[in-house]
Design a protein around this nucleic acid. Structure first.
Lengths: 246, 246
DNA sequence: GTTTGTGAACGCCTTCACAGCA
DNA sequence: TGCTGTGAAGGCGTTCACAAAC
């Protein structure tokens, strides 16, 4: 049923949500696919099609109620519930992430910070004491046991839902493995490397170990962004984007 | 001629390049589309098709020479030449970006840092004194005049090629406009907002001001990454592959 | 035999036109 | 009339099979 949704649609939904938040701040009561299209840099067809994957949120002839559509998108994207997050790597980048405003608006709760370096472990960041990475597995287990509230994901008791990887590139794969070993199913990878399931040798070939089953990896890679930008500056004709005079 | 290259191909080329660098560090002399496919999470068909957009880099029956292919990809991506970069917003995130290792490997030179806050302007970061944002336009002009070396982009004298936006979301649009007013054509936007060309009213409708002609915007948005991750954790059946995104 | 390079088929995402409803 | 919702068309990127080269 929910199969066959383009991943580009998910990215665009995030953008629509942001625009709706801005509209709510502007005390705008209603909007239209045309307006959402203009402010997001898409076509009105695209906006309507994207929304149609998840339901019927508008009123024909009228448009969309800003408040209602915003709530629906939050529900669709899973942002109406709390997410418990650990951050691995509390250097400049990890600290910037931990302190970046806007995450807590969506109940992304940073519940644990981990590093391995002398000067960083035991440091206090945003009211949390940085722990040593070796304690991750115990921390995740104890966290789940300490809180009887069920997880939004699987109905089991609360657990750590995501791990953010802000470690140096050469340590990213091992750190990802530590997250997976601890049972964490979502990884937001900031390191400029491809995080791959560790394969284990079996009779008849290599196979992915069970811990990696169902693990989702999303990448946020600004070095890659720099390189793409360099390419498009050299080849501007390939980027016909944002040039709609209407 | 070079038209019709999927933007997904550019993202993948960046990944291939990274893998080739790792291979060179491993003293691997040659590789194959199959191996590149495995390490990047793609198919061998995809790898060969991506490379074919830009030339014939392999030897049939033999594969690819790591060193050669790496150099070719660097050339294609525009990484064999120097890029002069300014960063706007030197809070925790901007400072983390300025200090992140790996950028200078590709001759991305941070030549100016800008902010508006009391405690940040005049601060020393990575050997550069943070300037007030008001000085941006003068800085860019003087920078171009100070260096007679031609720009890799247009053959004119050296200029500031890119601006990184690490300012708070509510100031991102204005800061982007400042970059564009200063004549900078590439923007790497870290703020969770859509950067749009400022339109000016003309007879017969709104039009994009000339300064925005040819401006490229690439986004690196980790809050969006968090939200996509939340969605895919709730809907794991939609994410059958691990792939990188825009 | 091995692996690249590529025209063609395929499938999916986007675009479109119009039906449906206020 | 106005704008949404959606089946169908179209276009584009991925997949494929095989020819070409070593």
């Amino acid at each position: 049923m929910t199969s066959g949704i383009p991943s580009a649609t998910i990215s665009r939904l995030v953008t629509y949500l942001r625009i709706l938040e801005a509209m709510e701040a502007e005390h705008k009561a209603s909007t239209s696919s045309t307006e959402l299209a203009e402010r997001s840099g898409n076509t009105a067809f695209q906006v309507r099609k994207d929304l149609a994957y998840f339901g019927r949120f508008g009123t024909r002839g009228m448009g969309y109620t800003v408040k209602l559509l915003r709530r629906e998108l939050m529900r669709v994207l899973g942002l109406t519930q709390a997410w418990n997050v650990v951050i691995l790597g509390i250097g400049r980048l990890g600290e910037a992430i931990a302190n970046y405003p806007g995450a807590s608006d969506y109940a992304f709760n940073y519940v644990g910070l981990f590093d391995v370096a002398e000067g960083i472990v035991d440091k206090d960041v945003r009211g949390l004491k940085v722990r040593h990475l070796d304690e991750l597995q115990d921390f995740v287990r104890e966290f789940a046991e300490s809180d009887p509230q069920p997880s939004p994901v699987d109905g089991k008791r609360r657990r750590v839902d995501m791990g953010f990887l802000a470690v140096p590139p050469e340590k990213a794969q091992d750190a990802a493995q530590a997250l997976v070993n601890a049972g964490i199913k979502g990884i937001l990878n900031f390191a400029p490397v491809v995080i791959a399931p560790r394969t284990i040798e079996r009779e008849g070939g290599a196979d992915v170990s069970d811990e990696w089953q169902g693990v989702i990896v999303e990448n946020v890679d600004f070095l890659a962004g720099m390189k793409r930008l360099a390419f498009y500056i050299l080849n501007p004709h390939l980027k016909l984007e944002m040039e709609d005079t209407l």
